[in-house]
């Protein structure tokens, strides 16, 4: 089973990447956005977003979704950072998983944007990723981990 970081620990689960050319996602593959949209019952559902998908179509079902995976096919494409933040700010409470080619060096920013699970394409990076999860102990801006910017907390 693929390994990932969740709740600050290395663990594993059964989810596999989406299969693009299927009408419905074969178990245990994550549905892509169009496969997910065709689900009649979205309660307890999971979905994987790609860069460009946006989050608008998820909004009506946010309370029903259990897992949103956001793919980073290129670590330099930062759209997923805004997707995460936007989802959390719209009240999404389920698991938010970064998947793909992101770097351990991006873990901290990803976590601050609201991701709580991290699945590298390259599993050998899990330990390094874990090490970098909290590489900064202080921040200027508010984010999902601490909504108050430093200027509301300085003493």
């Amino acid at each position: 089973m693929p390994r990932l970081i969740k709740q600050g620990q290395i663990t594993s689960d059964a989810w596999l990447p989406p299969v693009a050319d299927a009408a419905t996602a074969p178990d245990p593959h994550l549905p892509n956005l169009s496969q997910w949209l065709s689900l009649a019952d979205k309660s307890g559902s999971a979905v994987q977003l790609e860069p460009g998908d946006g989050i608008a179509e998820l909004l009506p079902a946010l309370d029903a979704i259990e897992l949103v995976a956001v793919n980073f096919p290129l670590f330099t494409d930062g759209r997923g950072f805004s997707y995460a933040r936007d989802l959390r700010e719209h009240g999404y409470r389920g698991e938010l998983r970064a998947v793909g080619a992101f770097l351990p060096d991006q873990m901290h920013y990803l976590r601050r944007c609201g991701f709580d699970a991290f699945q590298f394409n390259d599993e050998s990076r899990l330990e390094e990723g874990l090490r970098q999860l909290d590489i900064f102990s202080e921040h200027y801006q508010g984010a999902m981990d601490e909504p108050r910017p430093l200027f509301r907390r300085r003493s």
Binding site: G78, F81, S82, Q106, H139, Q141, L150
Partner: peptide
């Protein structure tokens, strides 16, 4: 400057 420094959302524009 403070707001933009190490902003987690806008480092990969």
């Amino acid at each position: 400057r403070q707001w933009s420094t190490l902003h987690p959302e806008f480092a990969f524009l």
